[in-house]
Amino acid sequence: MPDAATPDIAPLAVTAADLHLPTQPFSAAGLHLELVPAQARYSLRARDAGLLAATIGRALPDRIGDTLDGVIKLGPDEWLALLPAGATLPLGEGLPVSVVDVSARAVGFTITGPGAAALIATGCPLDVERMAPGRATRTLFETVEIVLWRQSETAFRVDCWRSFAPWLWAALVAGAQG
């Protein structure tokens, strides 16, 4: 058990406010950050994409990084479905598929404006400028794993796990402020 002689490690300069996810959008020159309202998220896995599509009753994108009706293909056997809040998918019991509700796992942001790509590039090592609209991928923003989806020339969507969201929001705001 630590005793009084144990020196304290200097606490990080983190205030309570730093740990909260602002609910108000943030706007700077040419940039707008906003939280995505709660929605349903499903992690979908299967060797046989056809079986998975039939199980959940939705078409799936073919190529890694492509998106189709809110479903992103993240890996050879992995998709992430971003659906309206409350939507549920059949679990496919007994079938060689995995359908897992991860609605509460992540928080989403939208980043819009002419400076959106440059803002994401402050912490994302991909050539974001050259990412085609409609493409999405799992990647990193500094040390935090994100799912990055370019929805148009000037609009991106970023999802990260819930507990990383305050940090990511603050890092994006810091990046927007230079």
Binding site: L12, A13, V14, T15, D18, L19, T122, G123, E142, T143, V144, S163, F164, P166, W167, L168, A170, A171, A174, G175
Partner: peptide, 12 residues
């Protein structure tokens, strides 16, 4: 940016 509150994510 990795200083103060942004030094690293503090998960809660």
């Amino acid at each position: 940016h990795h200083k103060d509150a942004l030094f690293q994510p503090l998960r809660r």
